[in-house]
Structures are given as C-alpha cells and as structure tokens.
Amino acid sequence: MASQGTKRSYEQMETDGERQNATEIRASVGKMIDGIGRFYIQMCTELKLSDYEGRLIQNSLTIERMVLSAFDERRNKYLEEHPSAGKDPKKTGGPIYKRVDRKWMRELVLYDKEEIRRIWRQANNGDDATAGLTHMMIWHSNLNDTTYQRTRALVRTGMDPRMCSLMQGSTLPRRSGAAGAAVKGVGTMVMELIRMIKRGINDRNFWRGENGRKTRSAYERMCNILKGKFQTAAQRAMMDQVRESRNPGNAEIEDLIFLARSALILRGSVAHKSCLPACVYGPAVASGYDFEKEGYSLVGIDPFKLLQNSQVYSLIRPNENPAHKSQLVWMACNSAAFEDLRVLSFIRGTKVSPRGKLSTRGVQIASNENMDAMESSTLELRSRYWAIRTRSGGNTNQQRASAGQISVQPAFSVQRNLPFDKPTIMAAFTGNTEGRTSDMRAEIIRMMEGAKPEEMSFQGRGVFELSDERAANPIVPSFDMSNEGSYFFGDNAEEYDN
C-alpha cells in the first residue's frame, strides 16, 4: 500500500510504541512475548500442572481467558453494579484439565481477579502490559475465525453469508486497541457500523446529549479505520460520505453494504499476525530463551520457528480426527482463516481442507461434555516452508469459486491468482447506482469489472525454506488448481455463540 510509510507498523501498534527502528520493534515485541511466557509459567505453578498438562491447549485457553477477564475493567465495573446470582464479580476462573488415573478430569478453578492481575503485572515488570493482553485477544479471535462461520451475524446486519472472507476479527472485544483495529476485516468494521446506525434509528437519543457526542466521535473513528483499509480513492470518498452524514440511517447502511461487497474484489488491507497460545510461549521462556534479547516478529519467520520446536497437546472428542484438529489450530496460529487453501497447503506441506470436510468441533470443551471418553493427542503445528504475512489485500483475480465463501483475504505475501467468483459478486451490483453516491458507485463498479483474471497478485513473492531466515531465496510455489480455494466452501461450520 502506498501510504505504508505514514502508518505505524503493526509491531508498533502491538507494543504501543512511538516510531521505533526494526531492532527496537523486535525487542519490544519480544518483551511482550516474554511477559506472556513468564505469566503462563507462574500460572502453571499456581495450578500445580504437570509439564504435559501445561502444554494442553484447553488449559492455555482457560488461563488466557482468566487474565483477560481480570483486566476487563468495563465488564468488571458492570458486574459490580449489576450483581447477578451466583456470579462473584471479583473472581474469575474456568475449567482446568488434569490427568488422573490414566483419565482426563475437569476441575473448575476460581481465583481472585486481583490475584491474577498481581501475577500478570509481576510477570511483566510491574506494568499492565496491555500489548500482551491484546495479543491474547487476537489469538482467540484468530481461533474463532478458523472455527466458526459468522453466517447468522452477517444475515442479521443485512449482509450476504458468502462475504465471510471479510469477517476477520469479528469476535475481537471493543477494547483491543490499535492492534485489534489493524486485524479487523472490512466486513467486521461494516458490521460494527451498521449495528451502531441501527441503534440510532431505533433509539432517538442515541446521537443526542453528552453521551451522543461520545457516540458520534466513536462512529467517526470507526469510519476512519474502515476508510484506511480501502485502497481505492472511490471507496475512500464513499467512506467520507458515510462519516460526514448528519443523521446516519438506511442510506448509510446501503452504502456500507455496497462497500463491503466491493471489497470482495477491490480488497481492503487487513493486517495478519501470528499470535500463538500462551502454552507455546511459556515452555520456550522456561527453556531459557530470551525473546527480548533475541527479538521477535509476528509477521516473519519467528512464529514458524517457534511452532517448529513446540509440543502442544489437545483434548480430542471420541469421533474427532486429531489431524483435522491440528489443521484448525495451525490455521489459527498463522492467522489464515480466509487465505486461499492452495497457498496454505503449499506452505504447510500437507493438504489443507475446507472447514466442512474437517471432523472436528471447536477447541474448547463445553462444561456439560462427558470427560470419560476424552483422549488427548499432539497437535501437528509444523510447516514445510515459511512466508511473510501481508497486510495488503493483493490485486484481484477471477477463479472458480464456491457456493460458500466467494473470495479470499490473503494472509501471506505469496504470488498467486486470487480466487473470487466474479459473476456471483457482480450480480449483486445491478441497477442500484442512484442517489448521492452514484458517481462513486459507478466508478467502483467500473474498477471491479476491469479486474483481470490473468493478473498475478504479489508478483514474484515466494515462500522460503525454514533454514532461509533472511528470506534470501524465494520459492514461487505451484498450486494444484483442481483443489478448492475457499475454506468455508459450501460450508456447515458451527455458528459462533458468545
């Protein structure tokens, strides 16, 4: 993207840094990872977990959730003011799984939030270390993106479920800051804005008074975040219109849905970061690795190297396929839920299948599930090659597409044709070009129609051997075009429920 120079890199967003050079960025990201790792080690000690239990991804998720809940100030305040039966607002906890007599047992633990905050700050040299908290939120978000298709949420806001490739980060909490905003897809931002506008339509006082002023500035800020994701002048001009509207209503909703559809071809720039579970960072720190000293990046080879040398386990339900569970977590670790499966298959070195073909449910185990038949197995999170994460949407291309997802959002900077089903997408653009945004709409449609099938995206960008740390010898991959490109292809993934 041309304006790259004016933006802070995501590592800076990730670490609240002012302008830093590459070495400083690597050190501050490393410091953040160190903090998460030290916190995780301490929690495993508190909970008396064995090494194996500490490497269980379900335990990692519970521990991450506990610290996120302990620092969720708004919710904590709300819980104190609106006490609900049987919930102690000062405590947080969740299921911890232990191996007892050759069987997995679930144990519900409860801790004072104050105590968890103390352990977290102690692991982070006394700081609140917001960057580390956001990092864990993005890992949870990436896992949700890989596990669930947001059909219901899309339909509720009037969008087409086939636009799911635009929904990265749709389950990120509001408090995820600049680093969170960077990884949100165009569809996620559109959905947040539509929800806001709908509230304004239904509630006369939404934009009024002292609160209304705050609401208005939040609305304009979200519009600017979305505008910054678009790469064409016409899309940005249309966002200006939406932002400046005196009284946002149905016309703005129409414009936003139009823009979301246009992003299936004229893709937005959305950041991709490899955020790993805390149970990967903990053992690495415990083994003596100093992330701050060595430096770390979320968008280069580092996460690949770390996963190459990590042992992570997962509980497996009786009829689940461990290899499929591994694929789910591998995609989440690489922030690749909406990437082209052919690119992923090449990088991973084994075939990556669409969601609907995987015999696996989510990673988390519900409290009512029976533990008797639970097994555990090693997650295979290694890769054959590594590639640089991208934040450009890439230019655009036609490809055989599917009944489910009709476009992709690249996660890796790797040369390819970008699949999208042009006739299906263009069919949504018939007729409606009147109104105050008509010239911009016409211009956007013209650009979409001009998108050429034979153009290559990320020209000359390749993948790298894991021994090639400096990215000196790019390998331009070859793809098996007979395979499906979309992950949520004609899909039956479970729906995400809060």
Rank of each mutant, 00 (worst) to 15 (best):
2 A>W: 04
6 T>F: 00
7 K>C: 05
8 R>Y: 00
18 E>R: 02
22 A>L: 01
23 T>N: 12
34 D>R: 06
49 L>N: 09
57 I>A: 12
63 I>Y: 04
63 I>Q: 07
65 R>H: 05
66 M>N: 12
69 S>N: 12
76 N>P: 00
76 N>K: 11
79 L>V: 12
80 E>W: 10
81 E>C: 12
91 K>R: 15
98 K>R: 15
100 V>P: 14
111 Y>N: 06
114 E>K: 14
122 Q>A: 02
123 A>K: 01
125 N>F: 13
126 G>E: 10
129 A>L: 12
132 G>S: 15
134 T>H: 02
136 M>L: 14
139 W>L: 14
139 W>P: 07
155 V>L: 06
156 R>K: 09
157 T>V: 14
164 C>H: 01
168 Q>N: 08
169 G>Y: 04
169 G>K: 13
171 T>A: 01
174 R>E: 10
183 V>M: 07
183 V>H: 08
183 V>T: 13
189 M>K: 05
191 M>C: 05
193 L>F: 05
204 R>L: 09
212 G>I: 11
217 S>H: 01
222 M>S: 14
227 K>Y: 09
229 K>Q: 12
236 R>M: 07
238 M>I: 13
241 Q>H: 06
245 S>Q: 07
251 A>T: 06
251 A>P: 01
254 E>C: 10
254 E>R: 05
257 I>D: 00
257 I>V: 08
260 A>E: 04
260 A>N: 03
260 A>F: 07
264 L>A: 10
270 V>D: 08
273 K>W: 02
281 Y>I: 10
284 A>T: 08
298 L>M: 12
311 Q>E: 00
313 Y>P: 09
313 Y>I: 10
318 P>Q: 12
324 H>W: 07
335 S>Y: 06
336 A>V: 01
337 A>W: 08
340 D>A: 05
344 L>N: 08
346 F>C: 12
350 T>R: 04
352 V>F: 07
374 M>F: 05
376 S>Y: 07
378 T>R: 15
385 Y>T: 06
388 I>Y: 08
396 T>I: 03
400 R>L: 02
401 A>W: 04
407 S>I: 03
411 A>E: 00
411 A>K: 00
413 S>E: 01
419 P>S: 03
419 P>E: 11
422 K>P: 00
435 G>Q: 05
449 E>N: 15
451 A>I: 11
451 A>N: 14
451 A>H: 14
454 E>G: 14
455 E>P: 08
459 Q>C: 00
483 N>T: 03
490 G>V: 02
